[in-house]
């Protein structure tokens, strides 16, 4: 049965999503995941949250999914050793070298290839499987046929984001934010947080969402007030299909959102999945879509506020 995976931006959120029906929670180790430190956890918090998950028979997965510097690999392995020693076996990674190092050092750990790997075709999934990934997150526009191939022909776990953003560019292959503003900041462990790089430090200034003018070569205005499309989405209609396809994990992103909102998202998907699986033939989607509309309104309000803050922080006017 598909696992429902949700975000743990804080220990409190981790507990809330598990209590709201998630089968698993993912958390970021401080400095090592695709969100800024504010939405990540210190080692002791990670370990305590994992203990709570285990007490419910559930799973905690640690995101190590930033692209580190070569010199930071020993820090990664030391942190992983601490977590493995505390009984954590599930990790999310992007760097294929780090993936290989982790599986060689800690045989038997479960590695999920992050959304940052930008897996757009089944051959990509093969590559990451051979590097040690047990499951892959597909890029958000991958079609059903490619998903089926990944699940059945490649034979690696398949994970789909049901709440995330369709970045203007391919997520994981974009450096627009760090081009605008990047600062190197080292924490007490010596980890660089690469502020401004979503791929390396987790903080994206979302500069694509500021207002742009497009000009011709001679400087004349072609179009004013453009916003590069970067939409947050929820998959609802697709859930039955994804379950029929045998997707292994349905993932709800949301570490930067409020705990009550993330709790609502998790409860919604839990009930939707359970309802469909209870009786596929009589399942009707309409009521679920109405319910989702309320969540979308709330999510959009939180996202707008967050985006304006980030653009302003980047140094551009929003």
């Amino acid at each position: 049965m598909a696992e429902l995976l949700a975000s743990g931006g804080t220990a409190e959120m981790a507990r809330a999503v598990l209590d709201s029906g998630a089968d698993a929670v993912y958390v970021g180790a401080k400095g090592w995941s695709r969100r800024r430190a504010q939405y990540e956890m210190g080692d002791e918090e990670v370990i305590a949250s994992a203990r709570y998950a285990r007490s419910l028979g559930k799973v905690l997965r640690v995101a190590f999914n930033t692209l580190p510097a070569s010199g930071e690999i020993p820090l990664l392995l030391a942190k992983a050793e601490k977590f493995v020693g505390a009984g954590i076996r599930d990790f999310i990674l992007t760097d294929v070298g780090a993936m290989k190092a982790l599986t060689e050092r800690f045989p038997g750990v479960q590695i999920h290839a992050s959304v940052g790997c930008t897996i757009v075709n089944a051959e990509d999934a093969w590559f990451y499987k051979e590097a040690g990934a047990t499951q892959v997150v597909t890029e958000c526009r991958v079609d059903r046929e490619e998903m089926r191939k990944i699940r059945q022909e490649v034979g690696v776990g398949l994970e789909v984001l049901v709440h995330a953003t369709t970045c203007f560019t391919y997520l994981g292959r974009c450096t627009m934010s760090s081009y605008t503003r990047q600062e190197w900041r080292f924490d007490e462990e010596g980890k660089n947080h690469f502020l401004g790089s979503p791929n390396r430090g987790g903080l994206c200034y979302r500069v694509c969402l500021t207002e742009w003018d497009q000009r011709r070569g001679d400087g004349s205005l072609e179009a004013g007030g453009l916003v590069l499309p970067n939409l947050a989405y929820f998959l609802v209609d697709d859930i039955p299909d994804l379950l029929d396809l045998g997707v292994d994990t349905i993932k709800i992103q949301g570490r930067e959102y409020s705990i009550p909102l993330v709790g609502r998202m998790v409860r919604f998907y839990r009930d939707l999945i359970d309802s469909y699986l209870r009786d596929r033939s009589s399942f009707r989607m309409e009521a679920w879509k109405e319910q989702m509309a309320g969540i979308i309104t709330e999510r959009d309000a939180e996202r707008r506020e967050k985006t304006a803050g980030l653009i302003s922080e980047s140094g551009l006017s929003a």
Binding site: T180, V207, R216, G217, G315, L316, S317, A318
Partner: peptide, 21 residues
């Protein structure tokens, strides 16, 4: 050629020493 530009030199939110993007 197509150039995307944002911000104005010395405009709101501009950090000193940096031109428009």
């Amino acid at each position: 050629e197509h150039w995307l530009t944002a911000g104005r030199p010395g405009g709101r939110g501009q950090r000193s020493g940096e031109g428009a993007w």
